[in-house]
């Protein structure tokens, strides 16, 4: 069973394959059950008006300051998961170290909050 773990991923591969087959099957069945097998193309819905322009555009996401904080913080998860495994063995120093680290990051979050990064600017 040395390769049991690898076949664990084989299980996930099977899920992917089944999922793909299932989705394809759903589309195939739908061709038979729908009132017409071919799909329609329609103008996007705009409350009954003809769209004045394409919707795909340089869309302004007003929450972008948050993403900066988020991306900086989530890098931390890289360390978090391996840390999980060793907490019990390494002991106090691991806990202290990680939470000092998290504490520093939380300071950043607090500061970002004071700057209004979380209030939709």
């Amino acid at each position: 069973m040395a390769d049991a773990a690898t076949s664990g991923w084989a299980g996930l591969l099977a899920v992917l394959v089944l999922g793909a087959v299932g989705v394809a099957g759903a589309f195939a069945v739908h061709r038979l059950t729908a009132v017409a097998p071919r799909g329609l193309t329609a103008w996007p819905w705009l409350s009954g008006w003809h769209p004045p322009e394409h919707a795909l555009s340089r869309y302004h996401a007003r929450w972008y300051p948050v993403t900066v904080v988020f991306l900086a913080f989530d890098v931390e998860m890289l360390f978090m998961y391996p840390w999980v495994l060793v907490v019990a063995d390494v002991g106090v120093s691991a806990v202290v170290e990680m939470f000092v680290f998290l504490g520093v990051l939380l300071l950043g979050v607090l500061w970002a909050r004071r700057e209004g990064a979380f209030s939709w600017q």
């Binding site: 913080f73 950043g108 970002a112 700057e115």
Partner: peptide, 11 residues
């Protein structure tokens, strides 16, 4: 990371 957060938010 802290510097990143601060700098990112400032910018």
């Amino acid at each position: 990371m802290l510097a990143t957060i601060v700098a990112g938010v400032v910018l």
